[in-house]
Simulated assay, not measured.
Amino acid sequence: MKQVQKIKLGISIGDLNGIGSEIVLKTFDDSRMLDFCTPVIFASAKIITFLKKQYKLSLNFQGIDDPSKAIDGKINVMNVWKENVNINFGEEDPEVGKYAFLSLEAATAALKNDDIDVLVTAPINKSSIQSENFNFPGHTDYLARELEGESLMFMITDTLKIGLLTDHVALKDIASVITPELIQKKIDIIHETLKQDFRIQKPKIAVLGINPHSGDNGVIGKEDEEILKPTLHKIREKGKLVYGPYSADSFFGSKNYKNFDAVVASYHDQGLIPFKTLSFGNGVNFTAGLNKVRTSPDHGTAFEIAGTNSANINSFKEAVFKAIEIYKCRKEYRKLTQNALKKQGRKDTNKKLFTKDN
Rank of each mutant, 00 (worst) to 15 (best):
S31L: 02
Y142G: 00
A175W: 03
L160A: 04
L171I: 13
K112W: 09
T287K: 05
K98S: 12
K347G: 00
S250F: 10
T349A: 09
G218K: 02
V77T: 08
A110H: 08
Y246I: 03
K52H: 05
F354A: 15
L111T: 02
S279F: 04
K69M: 10
F198W: 03
I305D: 06
D30T: 07
M153G: 08
H139V: 04
K52L: 05
F303C: 12
K126I: 06
I183E: 06
S44G: 10
E95D: 01
S44M: 07
P230H: 06
Q196N: 14
D115Y: 04
K342T: 10
F101H: 07
G97Q: 01
T337E: 13
V169R: 11
R199L: 11
P203R: 10
L9V: 12
T231E: 07
I235R: 06
P180W: 04
K126W: 08
R32M: 10
R346F: 13
E318S: 15
K98W: 02
V169D: 12
Q130F: 01
S127N: 15
F354C: 11
D65A: 09
A175P: 13
A70Y: 02
D167G: 03
F251D: 08
L25W: 09
K347P: 00
S21P: 01
A306L: 13
S21V: 08
K186T: 05
T140F: 08
Y333H: 15
Q62D: 06
F260N: 03
T108W: 13
P39S: 12
L278K: 11
F101E: 04
K356C: 02
L341R: 07
I183D: 08
L241D: 14
L171T: 08
G253Y: 09
K112N: 14
K222I: 05
I205T: 03
V177W: 06
K195F: 06
R199V: 05
A262K: 13
A100R: 08
V219W: 02
P94Y: 07
E148W: 05
R145Q: 15
G149N: 06
G239T: 04
N358M: 13
L143A: 03
L104S: 01
T166V: 13
A302C: 12
K352C: 08
N135H: 03
N259D: 11
G163N: 09
I273V: 14
N17P: 09
K202D: 14
R346S: 13
I205N: 03
K342H: 10
K204M: 11
E105H: 15
K322F: 02
E95V: 01
Q184N: 15
G244I: 04
K276S: 10
I220G: 09
G271N: 11
K328A: 14
D197L: 00
V320L: 03
N339F: 00
G253K: 12
P245C: 05
V293W: 02
I71N: 04
K322S: 06
F134M: 04
A262T: 09
M155E: 08
R236I: 00
V177E: 15
R199Q: 13
V219F: 10
N60F: 02
S128K: 12
W81K: 08
D115F: 05
F303Q: 12
S44H: 11
S247N: 15
M78S: 03
S214C: 05
Y257L: 07
I189A: 13
